[in-house]
Design a protein around this nucleic acid. Structure first.
Lengths: 360, 360
DNA sequence: TTGTACGCGTTATCAG
DNA sequence: CTGATAACGCGTACAA
C-alpha cells in the first residue's frame, strides 16, 4: 500500500541505508555502489516513493519554476508565446506558472511580491505594461525583482532597465507592408491603430508614417482603445463614415489580425469588396488569418518564435543577466502575402523581386 | 540596500524579537501586540524582506500551486478553460502551472510523477487523454495521483474512477442543433467529425445520429483525424467530392469552430454560398465565430465557464473528493444562432418557440 | 562507498 | 503576548 507521506528517511530505514545514500541514488550521484543503488531503488519502487521537490527546492535554492507574466492567454498572440515558452521550459525540466497582469495594469511592487515570494528561477515578462513610456516606477520595480531572479522581456527596450529581451522589428515590418501596398498602386492608406501609448503601438505607427512619407503616400490614422474583432468591425465603419467618399483610402492596415478580422466584416457590411474596393493588411498572423474571407495578408510576428527565444534566454541565463544584458534579439517579421491585399499577378512580381518576403 | 537572501531570522534580530514573532506578524496571527507588530513591520519594509513560500510550503505541506493538464493552450477552447481557471485560482491566492500533454498522449505513471513531486494542491485534467474508452491504465494511474492531491476533470465520466468533474451536455446540445436545421427544412445533413475514439467525439456523434433519426433526416458521417482550419477546408472538399451531386447534404455540422472556419473556406472555394447552398453549424463558439463569412451558428460550450467551475471545485474541495465524488456538474450548451445556418425569419420563429436558445 | 549531522527558511507547539 | 525549539523533507560537507 502506498503512503503519500513517505520521506527519504523511511526509504532509508527500509533499505537499511542512510538517508544520504537514498538521496544520492535519487539524484543519480555517481559515488554509490551498484548493489546498494539497486536495493534502494527496489524499496523506492515498492512504496512508490516520490521525492518532494518543495524540500529539494528549499535546500538547493532553486525551484525549477519559471514565471510568465502576460495580459491575456486567450489572445492567440500571447497563447503562442506562452505555449512555446512552456515547451522550452519543459525541455529543461522546469515548469511554468502564469501570472496574469491586465492590459491596463502596471507592474507594481505589490505584483512582483507574488513572484518573489514564490522564489521563481526566472520571469518572462510581456505585455503593454512594460512598454509604457511614462511608467516611471517600472525600472525601479523591475530592478527589485531582478535581485531575486533573472528577467527576460518580450518587448521594446525599457528606459533605465537593461535586461535580456526579444522583440520583432516592427517599424521595418510595417514599412515593408506599406511598400507592398505602394507597389500595388495605392496612394492613400489608412492605419487602424491604438490610442494606447505603448511602444508596440508607436513602432507600428512610426513604420507606417515613415513608409508612407518616403513614398509620398497619404496616411490616414485612426485609433481605437480596445482591440478585438467587434471593435475592428466598428472602427472600419467609423473610419469610412468619418471621411468624404472621395477621400476614402484604398487600403487599410490594421494593428493586429484580431482587429483585422472585424475590419473585414465591417467592410463586408458596408458592401465593400476586399481587395477590389479596399485592400486590407493585418499584423500578427494568427491561425485564423489564412481562413478569413479573403485570406488576410499580414505581418508574421511569430509569437512562438518570440516565446521560444525568450525562454531560452531565461533558462540559459547565467544570472549575470543582471549585470551585462546581452544584445537584444531582434526578430524580423516576414510579410505573408495572401489575397486581402490585391492581385496575385502583382504578388508574383513582388516575390521575384524581393526575396525577403514569405509566401504562404 | 536590499539583500535577496534575508530570512525571517535576520528580521527578528534587527527588530529585537524572536523569529516566531516575525512569523506571526507576517501571517497576521492575532496574538501579537500592536507595538511589536509595527516594529517588525518597519524592519520588514526597511529591508524589503519577502517571505519564502517554498519554506512555507514545506512546513505547511501545501504549495498553493494548482496544476492544469491540457493538450494545447493555443487552441482557443483550452485557452478559455485555462484563462478562467487561472483567474479563479488567483482569486484564492493560488497560482497555476501548465503541464502539457499532447492530444495523442496518455496519462502515464511517468507523467504524474512530475505532478506528484511538485506536491501540487490539486490538479485539473482535461483533454482527449482522459476520454479514451480503452485506456485501461487510466483509472489506476489517476488513483495513484489522487493519493497525493484532489483531482477535477473537465470531461466525461472515467469508468473506474470517480472524481469531481464538469462537462457540457454534448448529445443534447448537438441534438438541439439538428432540431434547428430540421426546422429550417433540411432533410440531409452531414457531420464532419473525428476518427478519434473519445467521448467528446462520441457524444457529439451520438447527438447527431439520434437527432437525425428522431426526425427522419438522412445523416452523413465524415471523419477527420486532425482538427484545424486547414483540415476543415480539406474535409469540406472531400466530403462533397465523395458524393454524387444529388446526394449532397444541404447542411453540414462541424465538430468544432476551428474546423468550421476551414469548412467555410472550403465551401467558398467550391463556389458554394453559405447558407443558401449549404448551411453550416459549428461547435465551440470561439472569439472568431461571430466574424466569419457568414457569421457562424454554433453551440456554445462555454469553455470559460467550464474552467471556472472546475477550478472552483478543486479549490473548494475538502479533500474527501477522493472518497465521495460529488455529482458531476453538467453545463448546458446554448445554441448560438447566427447567419451560417439560414434565414433570419426562421430564426425569429425558433427564438419565439424555444426559450432555451440564445441569440447573439 | 557510506553515514553523521547540519542547514535550507518557515511554522507550530509548548512553555513562560 | 512572546520566545525556544522542534519539525517539514531533502542535499551535502565532512568524517569514517
Amino acid at each position: 500500500m502506498l503512503d503519500s507521506r513517505l520521506t527519504i528517511i523511511d526509504i532509508a530505514r527500509e533499505a537499511g541505508v542512510s538517508s544520504a545514500t537514498v538521496s544520492r541514488v535519487l539524484s543519480k550521484h555517481p559515488n554509490v555502489s551498484a548493489l546498494t543503488a539497486s536495493r534502494v531503488r527496489a524499496v523506492v519502487d515498492k512504496y512508490g516513493y516520490q521525492p518532494n521537490s518543495i524540500a529539494r527546492g528549499l535546500q538547493q535554492r532553486q525551484s525549477h519554476v519559471l514565471g510568465i507574466i502576460m495580459p491575456d492567454i486567450k489572445h492567440p498572440y500571447y497563447a503562442g508565446i506562452f505555449s512555446a515558452a512552456q515547451r522550452e521550459a519543459e525541455g529543461a525540466g522546469s515548469v511554468v506558472q502564469l501570472y496574469r497582469l491586465e492590459y491596463n495594469g502596471s507592474v507594481t511592487e505589490e505584483f512582483i511580491r507574488r513572484l518573489i515570494e514564490r522564489r521563481l528561477d526566472g520571469t518572462l515578462l510581456t505585455g503593454g505594461f512594460i512598454e509604457s513610456p511614462n511608467a516611471r516606477e517600472l525600472p525601479i520595480v523591475l530592478d527589485r525583482l531582478r535581485q531575486y531572479m533573472p528577467i527576460v522581456t518580450i518587448g521594446p527596450e525599457i528606459p533605465g532597465f537593461e535586461c535580456a529581451r526579444v522583440w520583432p522589428d516592427l517599424p521595418n515590418g510595417v514599412r515593408r507592408a506599406v511598400d507592398l501596398l505602394a507597389e500595388l498602386g495605392h496612394k492613400r492608406i489608412a492605419f487602424i491603430g491604438a490610442t494606447t501609448d505603448t511602444r508596440s503601438v508607436g513602432e507600428r505607427e512610426q513604420g507606417f508614417r515613415e513608409g508612407c512619407e518616403r513614398l509620398g503616400i497619404e496616411a490616414i490614422l485612426y485609433n481605437e482603445s480596445i482591440h478585438n474583432p467587434a471593435k475592428g468591425e466598428e472602427s472600419a465603419v467609423r473610419l469610412l463614415d468619418g471621411l468624404p467618399r472621395n477621400r476614402w483610402p484604398t487600403a487599410v492596415m490594421v494593428i493586429n489580425d484580431l482587429m483585422a478580422l472585424g475590419v473585414l466584416k465591417g467592410l463586408r457590411t458596408l458592401g465593400l469588396t476586399v481587395p477590389d474596393d479596399m485592400a486590407v493588411v493585418g499584423c500578427d498572423n494568427q491561425f485564423f488569418s489564412a481562413f478569413t474571407d479573403p485570406p488576410l495578408t499580414t505581418l508574421n510576428l511569430n509569437a512562438e518564435e518570440l516565446g521560444r527565444l525568450a525562454m531560452r534566454q531565461l533558462i540559459g541565463g547565467t544570472g549575470d543577466l543582471s549585470v551585462n544584458a546581452p544584445e537584444p534579439i531582434v526578430v524580423d517579421p516576414g510579410l505573408i502575402i495572401r489575397e486581402s491585399c490585391g492581385t496575385r499577378r502583382r504578388m508574383a512580381q513582388m516575390l521575384a523581386a524581393e526575396p525577403a518576403l514569405e509566401a504562404v
